[in-house]
Amino acid sequence: MRARHILTWVFLAFCIFIVSMSFLYSGKARVGPLLVGIPLLVLLVAQIVIENRKKEALYQSGQGTSADEGAPLVTRQAHRFYLEIAGTLIGLIAAIYLFGILIGYALFLFIYLKLYGEKWLFSIALTAVFSAVIYGLFVIGLRMVLYRGFLLTLILQ
């Protein structure tokens, strides 16, 4: 299945879920979701029909794997990129969750820069400047309380 088709089905599942949940609410609270959800259901079904017709037409003309059908979701190369993206996001979330915003950001930035071959001095300097800007503007300037992270909270307790 191609990327564009998967998303249409995801939207359809989301829409069915919202519409069916709406019936649990009373009076005015369900009017909005139903007024939007039901036409959306119709549109999504129409979109799926259109996509299927296009797919059939392409298969009949012998171009079933044409690039026109949309980017394949999982090729070996795409798989590697998706893993890199997932690794980056999970790494950042883990760093923030464990060490908090300030330390987590600094750790993530430094490790990322080093992983991709930046020099030690440059990596340390950029990390220090970035952390100083966040601390200066938001902690000192706006008196914002930054998320401390699981480990720091544990230590402070």
Partner: peptide, 27 residues
């Protein structure tokens, strides 16, 4: 059609949370 689908999904997402008028929690 895709434009309207995207717009309608956006509207449905905006319904999550406290309903301003009734005070009910939705989704």
């Amino acid at each position: 059609i895709k434009g309207f689908i995207s717009g309608f999904v956006g509207i449905l997402l905006s319904f999550i949370g406290i309903h301003d008028v009734t005070g009910l929690l939705r989704f």
